[in-house]
Simulated assay, not measured.
Amino acid sequence: MLKRLLRSVWFCPEPYLPLLAAALLMAPSSFALASTAASTIARPSPMQYPQSSKEVREAAPEMTPQIAQLGVQIDPLDSPHPIPWNWVLTTHTEVSTKAGSGVRYYRSPSLVSPDGQYAAYSRIKMEVQPDLFRSRVTSVMFLENLRTGDLRTISASSPLADNPFVSNEEADMPGIIAILIPVSWSKEGDRILARQFEGLFSTSDASDYAVVWDRKQNRTTTIAPNRNDYSNAILLGWSRTNPDQVLFRAGELGEENWPLWAVDLDGQTLAAIEDQPLVFGQTITHSWAGPQAHY
């Protein structure tokens, strides 16, 4: 079903962390961290965004494992751009314990473009079932024009993506995780790079795809390393060497050193030698009005 996602434990470069990750998926209540408040999709107030943003951050190229500690945002792939995994685990624990099943929403922080014209954020939806492996997590990413207030949605075309324009029976299966979050704008603010994390609950099936929206061409492209020798890929950011390429680390479970790959928008994949990932834009955590949570 899923290409490259056929292994028995989550990726982890250290031998003790696969056991930890498996425990996180099978018994989330034991490791659940403080819950991040779920939120509605109330439109953010443009007045609360900065007029311009030129923040440049260098994404961490090394995949250093993190132990679940209070206040640490864990991620199934130990990504430098974590999905709200704490919220997923604690939400399942709370809902399944009190109500058995239900639907909850989470809204990500906004990522403002360097020119201050656009903000990107995601609404994540969790359909909770008593069994974690039957629950579902899907998402929608929004782009807001801060001058006009216009909204548009961005969707991936990866194997488990919930794309309204593409019929995909696999995206309707129980147990899927398909989370799209903004990672970086381009330096000029004319493209946005997003992380599409896909996986299955209670399995090691997990990998990243890169989703790029080009403002000038009004085109969305989904890419991943065009290789057959890896089980998991981790999106890092834009290439410092070539701004038109996206950097991934990809490898086999159990291997200590994962190669660095540069992927262009046509999917051409090359080994990245002495390259570094970059991300641009400013993250605004509390930029929207209205209630922060809705159940």
Rank of each mutant, 00 (worst) to 15 (best):
T221E: 07
L247M: 11
S202N: 14
G199V: 12
P46M: 05
H286C: 13
W288C: 02
S113G: 01
I124W: 05
R249S: 01
W288V: 03
P28Y: 07
D150R: 14
A99C: 11
S39T: 12
A21T: 11
T222S: 03
I273M: 08
Q129P: 00
A119P: 03
L77P: 02
E55T: 05
Y106R: 12
N86V: 10
W258C: 11
M47I: 10
T269Y: 07
A37S: 15
V137P: 00
R147G: 09
F165G: 06
D205C: 14
D205F: 08
G71N: 02
A68W: 03
S29M: 14
Q66E: 05
I223K: 01
A224D: 07
A178Q: 06
I181W: 02
I192S: 03
L180D: 02
S135G: 01
L160T: 05
L20D: 08
P291H: 09
A119C: 04
G149L: 01
S113N: 02
T93L: 12
A38G: 15
G199I: 09
A271F: 09
K125T: 03
T153S: 15
R152Q: 11
D229A: 09
R215C: 00
A250R: 08
R152T: 13
M126V: 01
F11P: 04
S186D: 02
N242M: 03
D78Y: 00
M1E: 11
S202W: 07
K54V: 02
L33R: 15
I67M: 13
E169S: 13
E252S: 15
W10G: 08
I179T: 15
P15M: 08
S79A: 06
Q69T: 11
L143R: 08
I273S: 08
P114K: 05
P225M: 05
S158A: 10
S113F: 03
G237W: 01
S53F: 06
D162H: 03
A206D: 07
K54C: 07
T97S: 13
V279L: 00
G267T: 14
P28D: 07
P82W: 10
P50E: 10
W261F: 06
R7D: 14
S122N: 09
S29Y: 14
Y16A: 11
S287C: 11
I234W: 01
G281R: 05
V140N: 08
Q196P: 02
L5N: 13
L70V: 11
A22S: 15
M173I: 13
T97N: 09
Q129I: 00
P114Q: 10
V56Y: 03
D190T: 12
S139Y: 05
L143K: 06
I223R: 01
Q129W: 00
D172W: 00
L33H: 12
A210H: 01
H92D: 09
V263K: 02
L24S: 11
T40F: 05
S287P: 06
V166W: 00
S287V: 11
D131T: 10
Q129F: 00
